[in-house]
Design a protein around this nucleic acid. Structure first.
Lengths: 216, 216
DNA sequence: GTCTATATTCTGATAGAC
DNA sequence: GTCTATCAGAATATAGAC
């Protein structure tokens, strides 16, 4: 089962191999559902449509596949976190961040779940990430929040815990999908559900911080 | 490694066996860390301090251990959810619920993680729970929220999404512990951290719903 | 590079002595 | 009820033909 590459013609070296991305997708799907130990190399190979030995050829061993998947997810995260334009307006910035996080839950639920399972297991393979990129990103956010508070632009709220609230609220729609589906009485989550989610989260967070919604 | 039973003298039948609770604890710990497939019967037996065959004798097979652990967790959940006294005052009710959820994250982090991993895997063993007890509990909550909104006691906010916000925000402290530890710059989460968490969540949620904190 | 066949290790489960 | 020894099956990993 080969993958139709959506962007331009085949460039050897740029996109290393068609098969490789195909295996990564298959592995992400499997890991998100069955976890690391619950996923077999055979399962990955079958889903990707290649013989099992090829997976070993490309990724050395199972841990190699897993770290490749995790690295891919961290790259995605990096894009989402950095694509948000810095603004002086707290309300606008928070809205953009909430929208981006909810959209990530909608467009990348499997990646979100692999990340969450890694966290639940104590994040043994994320130590480097947490102490490096995340640490720096967090510090800059905390500074910005504090400057807003000091300037009287928003209520005095512990910035770290506020971030956890936004993180947890938005991630919930990917990670606890069965509960969300059951609660909303739907078999599949559609755009409208995510829109309603974003609207509620923004409404509560903004007002809870003493902010008024930005003019659209 | 036997367990000292904390409540009263040994009563055969009431507390079925000392060993059994010991194995359940060991299994909960293992499942929360390594997931279902990543946990071996040998690991459970070793942690509980009994020979592997005994685990099979008590729980039939591995799935038997897992369902027993899950059932135990659902009982805990039931207690937490139902222990909250019904009140006419939205602010008081929300505060009690948030405090209870945060306290659950502090006192039962492993149980919270097993539950979360099951959700992340699509909740195949929670269908009955979701369609039965949870469904009923949710419906009653939604009705209460709606009655508060209709009575003008709180802002018009989608009750389901508001519940997800509270759920996600509070659960985060158990499920994403590595991220929280790193962010707060601590090696272990103490009571004070959970107090600060509860304070922030209550502050934002209450004000975000147009409520004023209840008098202590 | 791709695939088949095989070796090796691990784990769930059970048989049977005590 | 408790434990040791063992079986049967599955999964990782590799060797080697093409």
């Amino acid at each position: 089962m080969n993958r139709t590459i959506p962007r331009g013609p085949y460039k050897p070296g740029k996109i290393r191999q068609n098969s490789e991305q195909c295996m990564l997708d298959a592995a992400t799907q499997a890991f998100s559902r069955y976890g690391f130990s619950g996923t077999s190399m055979q399962n990955i190979a079958d889903t990707a449509g290649v013989p099992k030995a090829n997976v070993h050829y490309y990724f050395k061993n199972k841990m190699g596949v897993y770290t490749a998947v995790l690295g891919n997810i961290l790259d995605l995260w990096d894009t989402v976190l950095n694509d948000i334009t810095v603004t002086d307006n707290p309300a606008t910035a928070l809205c953009r961040y909430i929208d981006a996080k909810i959209d990530f839950s909608r467009t990348h639920p499997q990646e979100s779940r692999v990340f969450a399972k890694e966290m639940l297991s104590g994040a043994p393979h994320l130590q480097e990430f947490l102490q490096d990129k995340y640490e720096a990103w967090l510090a800059s956010r905390l500074r910005i929040f504090q400057s807003w508070i000091d300037a009287g632009k928003m209520d005095p709220i512990d910035p770290a815990h506020l971030l956890f609230m936004i993180w947890g609220s938005t991630q919930h729609y990917a990670d606890f999908e069965p509960q969300v589906k059951q609660s909303l009485g739907t078999d599949t989550l559609h755009q409208e559900h995510f829109d309603a989610a974003a609207k509620t989260v923004k409404q509560v967070i903004l007002k809870g911080c003493g902010l008024t919604p930005p003019a659209p």
